[in-house]
Design a protein around this nucleic acid. Structure first.
Length: 296
DNA sequence: AAAAATCGCAACCGCTCTCAC
DNA sequence: GGTGAGAGCGGTTGCGATTTT
């Protein structure tokens, strides 16, 4: 026996929203808010729509400050970077791009960005990349850490916890050579063209499934963006000198994501990793390929 | 000019997770 | 602890618009 439907599908309207419906929904939410109950909202607002449909329409289209179309190069880079790091966690990616929705980003990635990268990624490199490993550090927040591990688990990375340092959790992620030359991971190659992997990224991430702050939501996704984990990633090629290959003489030595987070809190760890750990870590290429095969 | 193919995106579906009871 | 309802998420679909043949 399946679960009960969220609404009476026979009596709700489906398909594209009319301007009148949009106006009704917007007017109602402007006046009364969502009340934290989307299922009951359509009836109160006088709409013959499923609550989920109302929610989607509001979040993806009617909500104030939504941006549509014309992704900038910076946005492209952020999307590529995050996709390479966490995979298709669109709500998390959307949280980094104010005004963008997860649906928008997902569509953009699937229809344009992926194709764009196929044309400009590994194929243009003078020699093939072999593999890429990053070391990532997370604040010891058990729930967010667990989700982060989960996120990586579903990406194209193989993830291995390698311990803790100064109270932070550390794990490594590897992308195998096979994927570095595919569309799925060509983004990584592209990122390497623009951002020095020997530097680091610090981002204020917003992870999904943390409830209770609907009104304060600032993400374009369905998530509420209420958590904030500081992630610090340090990339280092382990099979040949990626720095020399990609960035021979490059002057891009700045961190990729210069958001106003507190970098200093992670400085110690950055130092420790850069001096002690990266040089000692090697990819298990066979294991990595096996993992990737499972997800592709 | 018309038909076919492809693209782009809004909307839907179904699953998982959380929370209240 | 078990259960059901609602929210959130990512994948997929449907269809109008655009491009190609």
């Amino acid at each position: 026996m399946g679960r009960a439907p969220c609404c009476d599908k026979e009596n709700v309207k489906r398909g594209p929203w009319s301007p009148e419906e949009d106006a009704k929904l917007k007017e109602y939410i402007d006046k009364s808010g969502t009340g934290g109950n989307w299922i009951a909202l359509p009836q109160k607002a006088g709409l013959r729509r499923c609550g989920k449909s109302c929610r989607l329409r509001w979040l993806n289209y009617l909500r104030p400050n939504i941006k549509h179309g014309d992704f900038t190069d910076d946005e492209d880079r952020i999307i590529c970077s995050l996709f390479a790091s966490i995979g298709s966690r669109w709500s998390i990616i959307a949280a980094q791009l104010p005004g963008r929705t997860d649906n928008d980003i997902k569509n953009y990635w699937n229809t344009k960005l992926k194709k764009k990268l196929i044309g400009t990624g590994a194929a243009e490199h003078k020699k093939p990349l072999q593999s890429y490993t990053s070391i990532s550090v997370f604040e010891p927040s058990s729930r967010t850490s667990a989700y982060q591990y989960g996120a990586v688990e579903h990406s194209y990375y193989t993830t291995t916890p390698i311990g803790s340092l100064s109270g932070y959790e550390i794990f490594s992620s590897s992308v195998p050579s096979t994927l570095l030359n595919t569309s799925s991971c060509s983004s990584i190659n592209n990122i390497q063209e623009g951002h020095n992997l020997h530097n680091y990224q610090v981002q204020e991430s917003s992870f999904p499934r943390f409830r209770g702050h609907e009104a304060a939501s600032c993400t374009s996704s369905d998530g509420d963006g209420s958590s904030s984990t500081n992630q610090f990633s340090y990339g280092k090629d382990v099979e040949h000198d990626l720095q020399n290959y990609v960035y021979n003489g490059a002057d891009d030595q700045k961190p990729y994501n210069e958001n106003p987070l507190d970098y200093s809190s992670l400085e110690e760890i950055k130092q420790l990793i850069s001096t002690n750990m990266c040089n000692n870590f090697f990819v298990d290429e066979n294991k990595t390929d096996e993992k990737v095969a499972h997800y592709t």
